[in-house]
Structures are given as structure tokens and as C-alpha cells.
Amino acid sequence: MRISSCAKSNIMVIITAMTKIAVKIKDFSFKYPDATVALENINLDIAHKERVGIVGPNGAGKSTLLLAIGNFLKSQAPVEIDGMLSTKDNIKKIRQKLGVLFQNPNDQLFMPRLFDDVTFGPLNMGLSKEEVILRSKEALRSVGLLDKKDKQPHHLSAGEKRAAAIATVLAMKPEIITMDEPDSSLDPRSQNKLIELLNQMSQTLIIATCNVNFIARVCNKIVLMDSGKIIAIGNRKEILGNQELMNKHGLEVPAQLISDD
């Protein structure tokens, strides 16, 4: 089959767009004030629309890496988000592009009413009131909590709090979303609901967790970390399916991959 030069150039444009870098980290290191090395020489490129799972044992530096991606850590090596460096002028644009879901949903839900919490981000983006209400309702509907918009966050269950926290991020329509242990303290039914929700999302997802069974059902690119370093990067089967590698770093091969074999 012959492909015309015009079609070729179109394909190139599509491929370039598809592989556009969403997050770029180069030689990033970070030490805590007590001199503990949290991240050491991190190099990572994440393309748009990729679903990246960061796995590793406790204390591997997964959460710190997410903080670095969220531009919350000060380091000599800057982190690029969608080609933008974290400068004073860019930080607002970066915050709009990058949604951050923290480990504990209680930290994310700080307003007295769920709807106020969801509108907090869009209002800070300077959107019109109509747009803010529209986005917030849409976000709550997508996580199945629209009927609970007037509830106080402390009256929600753990699964609902997690979904509500996701809605607070979705309302800002970010292109990239980082999630720190989104599956923690969720029962299997709530986990399945969350997986279903995550698999419907079209954003670039960066998820840190030590639950390999969860990550195997959501992410196709895996970053294995241990002791503040990136040990391996590869696709789901290459990393999560490698029993020797997983055992060496205190993890297990996910049940799903064992049954696939």
C-alpha cells in the first residue's frame, strides 16, 4: 500500500502530538532537612495520555516523586510540565494543567460543603460563575456524587471521600493528574469503582502505590522505585511480570498477570 507524502506528514504530526512530553524530569535529586536522601538522580519522561504507575516498597520515594512532579519541592533541577518550567509566571498555568490527588482525601476536602470544595479550584482559575457551576456539577456527576453535593465532607464514607477528592481535581479539567495511593483504605467494591472511573479518564495519569494488583488494572507504563532511585521503567508485563525483579524490591507479581500466563 502506498502512502502519499501529505498523509505521511499528517501521520508524523499525529505521532508527534501523541508523544508530546507531559512531564520531564532530568537529574532530579532531593534531600530532606535531616539529610535523608529522598530522591536521587531521577530522570523520567512521561508522554501525554500515558498512564504511568509508580510502584515500589514503603519509603521508596514514590510520594516524594509526586511532590516533585507537582512542583512542591525546591531543587536545582527543574521539572517541566508540558514544556513549561516552574517559574513565577508559569506556576499558575502549571497548576491548571496538573491536578494533584493527595494520599489522604481529608487533606483535599477542606471546605465545609462538598460543592464548595469542588468549586474551589475552578474559582481560583478565574472562570465565570456559570462555568464554575457547570464544571463542578459535571465533575461530581462523573464520580457519582452529584446528589451529595450539599453534604459535609465528614459525612461521606472513605470511598465517597476518595471520589469527592477526584472530583475536586476533575473540575479543574487538568491534562495531567498525579495520584498518591488512591486505593488506600478502600474496600474491594470501592477499589473496583475507582478503577472503572480511572479507566474512563482520558488525562495523563501518574499513580503511585505499592498495590501492584491495582496498578496492573489501570496503568500500562510502570516505573519501579526503591531507595529514592528509579530501578526500572517498562511496560506492565516487563516490570510487574518479572518475578525476580519484583521480589528483589519487596513486591509481588500481580495476580492478574499470573493468571494471564
Binding site: 487533606d107 481560583n124 460563575k129
Partner: peptide, 24 residues
Amino acid sequence: DISERVNLAMIARGFDGKIRTLSQ
């Protein structure tokens, strides 16, 4: 600890010290 984490969550959603609310 909680206040520090909440502060991070607020910054992550574009909080710059200015309070904006919906009044309708």
C-alpha cells in the same frame, strides 16, 4: 501535619491567598 498537607492541597488547586466564592 494536617495543616501543612491542607495548605499543599490548596496551593495545588491554584490558591494564591485570594478568596473566591460562589454567591448566588
